[in-house]
C-alpha cells in the first residue's frame, strides 16, 4: 500500500480512538476524558496504572458504555465495508448492505423471534439477534439462487430478485405486526435500529466475525477496482468474475448479517458513508475499503453518542441521527467538489 494511504488510515484510526474515548466518557454520569483514557490504557497488557477513578465509574465505563460504543464501532465498520463491496460489485450507487434482501430477511427473523413466547439465550445471544442473522443470510441465499442464470448471476436480475424478495418479506412482516398486539412497539423499535443491546458476550463473537470478513474482503480490493471496468473487461485483466462475485456477495452479506444481529436495521451508514469516503479518498478500493470502514465506525459511534445525549434521559433511535446529521453533510460534500462526482 502506498505510504500516503497508510498515513491516511493511521490518522483515521487515531480520530476513531479519540471518538471512542469521548463517547465512553459522556452520558448521564460524565467521567472525564483523561480518566477514561487512563482506564482504557490500564487494561492493555503490560500497562500498569494506579486507578484514579472510582469503582462505580469503572463499572459504568466497562460494563455499560464500552459495550455500547464497541457495538456502534463494529456495526459502523461492517455496514460501511459492506456498502463499499455492494456498490462496487453491483455497479450501483444506490446499493446498500440491505439491497439484496438482508434487511427483509433479518427483520422477518427478528419479528418472529420477538413474537415467540419463549426466551432462549445462547452464548449471550437472545433469540432475536440469532434469528435476524439467520434470516438475513437465508434471504440472500434465496435471492442469489433466484437470480442465477446458468453459470452467471447478472447484476440486474440480482437487484430485481433482491427487491422482489425484500418486498415479499416486508409484507409478511407487516402482516405479523398487524397480529402482534403488544409486541408492535418492540418490533418497530428493532426495525429502527439501536445499539443499546450491545453485550460483551455477543460482541466477543460478532467482532471477530466482522474483522475476519473485512480482512478477507480486502484481499479482493484490487479485483473490485478491476470490476469498475465492467465484468467483461475485468475478466480480461485476469479476474475470475463469477467466482469473485459469489465470494464478495457472501462476505458482504455476512458483514451485514453480523451487524444487523447487534443493532437491528441501522440505515444510511452503509449507503452514504461509502460515497462520502469516495469523495474524500478517491475510488481506489485498496484505500477506500478500510477508510470507509473506519469512517463508518466513527460516524456511528458519534451518532449513537448524540442519540443518547440530545434528549437525555430519553433516547433517540440512532437511525434518526445518522440521517439527520449525515444527509446534510453528504449534500455539502457533493456540492462542494468542483468536478462532477463520477460514480
Amino acid at each position: 500500500m502506498a505510504k500516503r494511504s497508510l498515513i491516511v488510515l493511521a490518522l483515521l484510526g487515531g480520530v476513531l480512538i479519540l471518538g471512542v474515548v469521548l463517547a465512553a466518557s459522556l452520558g448521564a454520569v460524565v467521567v472525564p476524558f483523561d480518566q477514561v483514557a487512563r482506564l482504557l490504557l490500564s487494561r492493555l497488557p503490560g500497562v500498569d496504572l494506579s486507578p484514579t477513578w472510582s469503582e462505580g465509574e469503572e463499572a459504568i465505563i466497562l460494563q455499560i458504555r464500552l459495550p455500547r460504543v464497541t457495538a456502534a464501532l463494529v456495526v459502523g465498520l461492517a455496514l460501511a465495508a459492506a456498502g463499499v463491496i455492494f456498490q462496487g460489485l453491483l455497479r450501483n450507487p444506490m446499493a446498500d448492505p440491505y439491497i439484496i434482501g438482508t434487511s427483509g430477511g433479518a427483520a422477518l427473523g427478528a419479528t418472529v423471534a420477538l413474537l415467540l413466547p419463549v426466551q432462549i439465550v445462547w452464548y449471550g445471544f437472545t433469540l432475536v439477534p440469532l434469528a435476524a442473522f439467520v434470516g438475513a443470510l437465508a434471504a440472500v441465499l434465496v435471492v442469489y439462487n433466484l437470480a442465477r442464470v446458468g453459470p452467471r448471476t447478472p447484476v440486474t436480475t440480482l437487484l430485481l430478485a433482491g427487491f422482489a424478495v425484500s418486498s415479499m418479506l416486508a409484507a409478511v412482516m407487516s402482516f405479523l405486526m398487524m397480529l402482534s398486539g403488544t409486541g408492535l412497539r418492540r418490533i418497530i423499535l428493532w426495525t429502527m435500529g439501536g445499539l443499546g443491546g450491545g453485550r460483551w458476550e455477543q460482541l466477543l463473537i460478532v467482532t471477530p466475525l466482522i474483522l475476519l470478513g473485512m480482512g478477507w474482503s480486502y484481499l479482493y480490493a484490487g479485483d473490485l477496482n478491476a470490476l469498475a471496468l465492467g465484468e467483461e473487461q475485468a475478466a480480461y485483466v485476469g479476474v475470475p468474475v463469477e467466482r469473485r462475485k459469489v465470494t464478495l456477495l457472501i462476505l458482504g452479506s455476512l458483514l451485514t448479517a453480523a451487524a444487523v444481529s447487534v443493532s437491528g436495521l441501522v440505515g444510511f451508514v452503509g449507503l452514504v458513508i461509502p460515497h462520502v469516503a469516495r469523495l474524500i479518498f478517491g475510488p481506489d478500493h485498496r484505500l477506500l475499503l478500510p477508510a470507509a470502514a473506519l469512517l463508518g465506525g466513527l460516524f456511528l459511534v458519534l451518532s449513537d453518542l448524540l442519540a443518547r445525549l440530545l434528549l437525555a434521559p430519553a433516547e433517540l433511535p440512532v437511525g434518526v441521527i445518522t440521517a439527520l446529521v449525515g444527509a446534510p453533510f453528504f449534500i455539502y460534500l457533493l456540492r462542494r467538489s468542483k468536478r462532477e462526482y463520477g460514480f
Binding site: 484481499l219 469498475a228 471496468l229 465492467g230 473487461q233 485483466v237 475510488p283 462526482y341
Partner: peptide, 27 residues
C-alpha cells in the same frame, strides 16, 4: 466501448492492467 465506473485517474486505470501480475495483498 468501456463504461468506466468511478473517477479513476488514467494512471490508476493503466495500473489495473497489472492485475494479473501484481500480488493480491500488496498491490
Amino acid at each position: 466501448e468501456l463504461e468506466m465506473l468511478f473517477s479513476f485517474s488514467v494512471w490508476e486505470m493503466v495500473m489495473m492492467g497489472r492485475t494479473p501480475h501484481a500480488p493480491r495483498l500488496l498491490g
